[in-house]
Simulated assay, not measured.
Amino acid sequence: MLHLSQSSEPHIAEVGLIEGTEHFRNIQRHDVKTLPHLLSLRLDESMFFANSAFLEETILNMIQNRAEIEHIIIQCNSISEIDFSALEMLESLNRQLLDKGIKLSLSEVKGPVMDQLKASDFMTHLSGKVYLSHYQAFEALS
């Protein structure tokens, strides 16, 4: 019960590039490079039924007053599992973002999670791309 409670509202960090490196850290804790048209996020939990609505709502709230955002990259290195509810949420989020003119990309997706994404329709509808590293995504979308 405690795990379910804690993982239902996971930490979502907006991250930026530590200049001179390929490392990304929380913008609230580090002096990092960000770009106004690019929202770079790190989810610190797997995605499943208990947190998918929270994740979608949080991401949509983050863009609410930021009209300059054209791309969102979700760094997925902490996501070890994704269930059907979370896949549906990603589909919905992708559509909602696209309606606002924002493309969604993913980076550092683990193999088992990528297998599940490919087994669904999500990859055919993804408005952005999947990048091997977050740095590659950041550079490509800069």
Rank of each mutant, 00 (worst) to 15 (best):
L2D: 14
L2G: 06
L4K: 15
L4N: 13
S5Y: 14
Q6V: 09
Q6P: 03
Q6S: 11
E9V: 09
I12W: 05
I12H: 05
A13P: 01
A13C: 11
A13D: 14
E14F: 03
V15L: 10
L17T: 07
I18V: 15
E19D: 12
G20K: 09
G20N: 11
T21L: 06
E22V: 10
H23A: 11
F24G: 04
N26G: 03
I27R: 04
I27T: 13
R29W: 09
D31I: 09
D31R: 11
D31S: 13
V32R: 01
V32T: 13
T34P: 01
L35A: 09
P36V: 03
H37E: 11
H37Y: 07
L38H: 04
S40N: 15
L41I: 08
L41V: 05
L41Q: 05
R42N: 10
R42F: 00
D44R: 07
E45Y: 08
S46I: 04
F48K: 06
F49E: 06
S52D: 12
A53G: 08
L55I: 15
L55Y: 06
T58C: 07
T58E: 14
I59R: 00
N61H: 14
I63P: 00
I63F: 00
Q64N: 12
N65C: 04
N65F: 09
A67H: 10
A67L: 08
E68I: 01
I69W: 00
E70V: 03
E70P: 00
I72W: 00
I72S: 01
I72T: 01
I74V: 15
Q75K: 09
N77Q: 14
S78E: 15
I82L: 02
I82T: 04
S85M: 08
A86Y: 01
M89R: 04
E91P: 01
L93G: 00
N94V: 06
R95T: 12
R95K: 13
K100V: 01
K100I: 01
K100E: 08
K103P: 01
L104P: 00
S105K: 02
L106S: 04
V109M: 07
V109W: 02
M114F: 13
Q116G: 01
Q116F: 09
A119Q: 14
A119H: 11
S120Y: 03
D121C: 07
F122H: 06
T124H: 14
T124D: 15
H125I: 10
H125S: 12
H125Q: 12
L126G: 03
S127K: 05
K129W: 09
K129C: 10
L132Q: 13
L132D: 13
H134S: 13
Y135I: 06
A137T: 01
F138G: 03
F138M: 03
F138K: 04
E139D: 13
E139L: 11
A140T: 13
